[in-house]
Computed example of a mutant assay.
Amino acid sequence: MDRVEVTMAFSWVPVGAVSLDEQQKLRFPKTAAQPGLYRFEIISAESLTQYIGETDQLSRRLQHYRTPGPSQRTNLRLNALLVEHLNRGDRVSLSAVTEGVTASCAGREHHVDLSVKSERVLLECAALLNARAAGVPTLNL
């Protein structure tokens, strides 16, 4: 039996606060048009909840949350949830990972290429496992 063992290391970089504009649409902090992971943290008086995602272009992905199309179920769900929390006075912060990710595979160090979807998805799954292991509820289905 072959054993697969992978260790991943990265740090979330704070991007800024998510807010609402005059039309009650989500307003995101400026982000680069590059691949990576992103994390929304919804902070209320009672709890901390996270949503973690991956994308090939961060700025475009956030725009999809701001103006979701009628068939984009995840975008519609997250848009409504974030707007609801912001209207209640909860804070929503955005963090991202766009560089500096390493993985150790079979005892060898490997630089994770975030332009490769399979590597982003692996990193997203690792981030979700890490959050859940720390007891942080996630909104990912």
Rank of each mutant, 00 (worst) to 15 (best):
D2C: 02
D2P: 07
R3H: 11
V6L: 11
V6T: 09
T7P: 00
T7M: 02
M8A: 14
S11E: 11
W12I: 12
W12T: 10
V15P: 00
G16T: 10
E22L: 14
Q23F: 12
Q23P: 03
Q24C: 03
L26I: 05
L26D: 06
L26G: 07
R27K: 14
P29W: 04
L37C: 08
R39E: 12
E41T: 15
E41Y: 04
I43L: 14
S44E: 10
E46P: 00
E46V: 12
S47M: 07
S47H: 13
L48P: 07
L58G: 05
S59C: 09
S59Q: 11
R60C: 03
L62G: 00
Q63T: 07
H64F: 04
P68F: 07
P70W: 04
R73E: 15
H85G: 02
H85D: 05
L86R: 13
L86Y: 08
L86S: 03
N87G: 10
R88M: 06
S93R: 11
L94H: 01
L94Y: 00
L94R: 00
V97C: 06
T98M: 08
G100P: 03
V101Y: 04
V101H: 09
A103C: 00
C105V: 12
A106S: 12
G107K: 11
G107C: 01
R108E: 12
H110N: 08
V112K: 08
V112M: 10
L114S: 01
K117Q: 13
E119W: 07
E119K: 04
V121Y: 09
V121Q: 11
L123T: 10
A127E: 05
L129C: 14
L129W: 11
L129Q: 15
N130K: 15
A131T: 08
A134P: 00
G135A: 05
T138A: 15
N140G: 07
